[in-house]
């Protein structure tokens, strides 16, 4: 369980990072809480790790006019402690404590989690539920991608070689918005058997397919449950069949439906 050999560089400017990332066998390293295990298990063997944690300006939480802009290097622990996130992006604030364990939340980053696109992870579902916008840069240009277009499949995203996810913008919650995050796990911090990020009529399930699964449900709970039955086909895991997960998704749907508050 030791990582294969690789070279390491810690650039201090974006320009230098992009030069290093031009190497097709280079990988960006942020908090490393998913990349390092995959190296340890030798599922990945990059030639070069480009440690982006020294890049300036990527670890900020900024409250702008109608969005909160979260830099890619903001850690889970920072989000967990942030009064701005609690106030303006309550869905995310509810989701953060579900991310792994304290020691991992101290190093793992929001950018790393989103760029990895693990379909069982919390943030991708939140990003889709909230219609977040991803800010992506390469050496010469910047582009913006909506969350729904960013997640392409199992660990697949819209990120192209040589690009970095720089920040994510979440809309500031209005007073009338309702947000609920729920997940079922065997133990606190484990991967969810199934989870749900709900923002108003947007219901996004995690652990339910190859990417966050979005449903739009309005008014009628019975219809919503039927829609879920017809539209959700979650992959079985070691302990739970697809049918069990679909049933549990319905349980979460009903719980979220019955929660009439934006706070915990």
């Amino acid at each position: 369980m030791k990582a294969p050999a690789f070279a390491y560089a810690k650039p201090s400017s974006l320009a230098a990072a992009f030069d290093l990332l031009a190497n097709p066998d280079a990988k960006a390293l942020a908090g490393g809480q998913s990349l390092i295990p995959s190296l340890n298990m030798r599922l990945s063997s990059p030639e070069l790790l480009v440690d982006i944690t020294g890049l300036p300006g990527l670890a900020e939480i900024k409250v702008l006019d109608d969005v909160v802009r979260i830099g890619a290097l903001v850690t889970h622990a920072r989000l967990e402690q942030s009064p701005e996130i609690k106030k303006h992006v309550p869905l995310l604030a509810q989701a953060v404590p579900h991310v792994a364990h304290a020691a991992i939340r101290n190093r793992g980053t929001i950018g790393g989690s989103l760029a990895l696109a693990d379909p069982a992870a919390e943030y991708p579902a939140c990003a889709v539920a909230l219609d977040a916008v991803f800010i992506i840069k390469n050496k010469t240009a910047e582009r913006r991608v909506k969350a729904e277009q960013f997640f392409k499949g199992l660990f697949e995203t819209d990120l192209k070689p040589g690009e970095l996810l720089i920040a994510v913008e979440f809309p500031i919650a209005a007073k009338s918005d309702r947000a609920v995050f729920l997940e079922l796990t065997r133990r606190h911090g484990d991967y969810a058997i199934i989870g749900l990020a709900m923002h108003n009529e947007r219901f996004v399930f995690l652990g339910a397919g190859d990417r966050p699964k979005l449903f739009l449900f309005q008014k009628d709970l019975q219809k919503a449950k039927e829609g879920l039955k017809a539209g959700l086909n979650p992959p079985a895991d070691l302990y739970n069949s697809s049918a069990t997960k679909r049933h549990l998704a319905g349980v979460l749907l009903e719980r979220a439906w019955n929660t009439n508050t934006t706070s915990r």
């Binding site: 390491y8 390092i36 295990p37 020691a103």
Partner: peptide, 19 residues
Amino acid sequence: CTLRVNGEIVRGCLMLAVQ
């Protein structure tokens, strides 16, 4: 392998010495 780095607990197997 839990350690404390800059006052915060971390996994010692998920952090490189060089980091």
